[in-house]
Nucleic acid binder design. Structure first.
Lengths: 217, 217, 217, 217
DNA sequence: GATGAATGAGGATTCATTCAT
DNA sequence: AATGAATGAATCCTCATTCAT
């Protein structure tokens, strides 16, 4: 009875959600220009004009996909940054969490990569409200680690970008990687192994460097 | 005088080259689906049908762009790998060389990224003949470094992918990076600085790790 | 009032029918290759893309035209054949009926002739389900006429083809004929006169032949 | 030595002839609209612009094909008509000769059929100078046969058209016929058999009709 | 909320033709 | 005589969008 007619508000919302699902898959797979509203409508099982009952146009649909997809990512980022109070393993932990999140939503990194290639115009507003402060704090955090004696301050942003590229690239180069290793880097196992690997790299990079001349080789 | 009459055959070849130039820029900027033959033709300054005097269709043009663009990269890779006989700093050197090459052809990494997102179907044949053996030797090379005691054999491919992502990502996230740092990462200075940075990271990662403590576990 | 709002579904169906009408005229006049979708759209009074709301593509439109046009012809043929039980004047009657039918749909013979010249690929499926059995029975019928002592069994199919050619050719050579006779062979009068003529020819050909040596020539 | 370099005049003529050959095949197979200059050039083994060294344009090429093809047919017709002085079996003989000629040039009937469907505009000038008088005499000839008591004068032209359709149709319905009989109606055997068949029909039709039983009408 | 129908704009591709070489 | 290159015009078709139902 509770599920019977479904308050039409809810049903509408559900349709919109289905559209977002289908659209996310399409945009992630083929990019904005490569995706047609027919692709999306077919994915939902409705006709094209129905899409316009839920989204103003293709552009708005794309923006909605991006926003819905980015929200959990940005939330995690800001949350992770705010708990800097914890001792220090946050960075590596963040990478693991991010990898896990993206592993469950593998469309997102592709979406982001396409968006970046396209100029990132749609990402800007989202980043403006979320990532900006997150990055600021992230920088602060990084500067409080031992790495501070290793990397010059102006290199810190590059360190961030580097890890962004590693993590996002993990998903966008999946076919290539699979071709190389023979195992699927997007499978739970692959995600697990590689997130450990990336975390280790990260930790290694924020270690203080051995003062050269010590016991060295 | 040297350029005066231009042995007619030459003119055709030059047109084809101009088309490749324009097409490379378009495909790199907007991807395959987002690029219009009108875009390309306008870039060359000819009419659309003229494109068909030089390339069978959009697809063939794209393939030609990719091949022409990838050739120097693949050549460098294979060359670099073959000179493994040299002592050992090859890896870091390779990164610097690659960054320099890509810095002069910033379309290439974008082209590759778009292509990877699209499934890499067109990259496959190119990689098959060049990168495959290069990678094999590259693995061998890596395994002859001190890192061998640090990374498990099955992690080595991931190390490669990681650096691929770092280097390619440097170019595809350029706008984002610029937004973050305020300076253009694609300028000669930016390329110089970041290639040093990435090389340092790389060297750091293939260092033998300090046995934590000393006698280790 | 009867034509006022038109139950929307009806409107679509009617458009499709108008398209078929226009397309039939075009294809009959200029053949498949010579017909452009612009011709058809102009004939209907709609824009070209609207055609695609009703037919998948030019090819499908052509197939639909052919099928719609051939159906009454094939139905008549099979009907006519089935009533073979009647005494015997069926053949001549069939020719008259066919001439009358085609006289009212003079596009059809031209359509068929164009199609045959093109290889008859689209006619095959239609003929397969209708004409095949019809021809079988037609042969049986012919063999039960006095002509049986005149034409060898293997000539019977040629007799059929001959009449096919006479009837179809009547329409496709109309301009030539008119040029020759000065009167329109496609006018009701022309159809009437020539169908009598062809029927007489047919009857004459299925008469038993005079045993040569009778009353001489 | 006589065949060595081939006086360039001759060579040019030969190319033109090759073009006509290829064009004839193309036009016969696919009609005017369905034939592209690329088809023709490919058939000859030259490039498209070279066609223009021999024929002003597609239209002129088509006219030349038609004229070259029709000439022997029209010559035979006029020759055949002129020898009416011979007793009388001319008609049946004409059919046999025509079938033999067309059997060796099976492109011609298809060419003519396409041309008729297209309106016969290009055939008109040819017919004007040849067929017109031929037909006049042909009518006279027919009227001097026993059939004169059978067919009304105004039916005579239809008799001619009928045989035109039978003969031309034999070639244009070849695929259909083959499908029906299992043997190729365009093979030497098929031509031989069917031309005998058509001749017999013709003779039968120009016989005086047997006054059915009584003393006639 | 859903959809059949219509359409302006545009997209890849073909075609006949021209021209310089 | 032959042809590579260029191109205006057209062709088939797709796309995003609108609107009446």
């Amino acid at each position: 009875m509770a599920t019977a007619p479904l308050p039409s508000r809810r049903r509408g919302t559900q349709t919109a959600e289905s559209i977002l699902d289908a659209a996310e898959a399409c945009f992630a797979r083929k990019g904005y220009a490569g995706t047609t509203l027919r692709d999306v409508a077919d994915g939902v099982g409705i006709r094209i004009p129905s899409l316009y009952n839920h989204f103003a146009n293709k552009e708005a649909l794309y923006a909605a996909v991006l926003e819905r997809g980015m929200t959990p990512v940005l939330e995690m980022l800001s949350r992770s940054v705010q708990q800097t109070d914890a001792d220090y393993p946050a960075p590596a932990l963040l990478i693991r969490e991010m990898m896990e999140l993206l592993g469950n939503r593998p469309n997102l990194p592709r979406l982001v990569q396409y968006e970046l290639l396209a100029g990132g115009q749609h990402l800007a507003p989202l980043l403006e409200s979320w990532l900006r402060p997150a990055i600021a704090q992230s920088l602060a955090m990084l500067q409080s680690t031992p790495a501070v004696n290793r990397w010059k301050p102006e290199q810190i942003p590059y360190l961030l970008v580097t890890f962004f590229n590693i993590v996002v690239g993990h998903f966008t180069t999946a076919t290539l990687t699979e071709n190389l290793t023979g195992s699927d880097p997007l499978s739970p196992t692959g995600i697990e192994a590689s997130s450990a690997f990336y975390a280790e790299i990260f930790e290694s990079l924020i270690q203080a460097i051995e003062p050269p001349g010590d016991s060295g080789d």
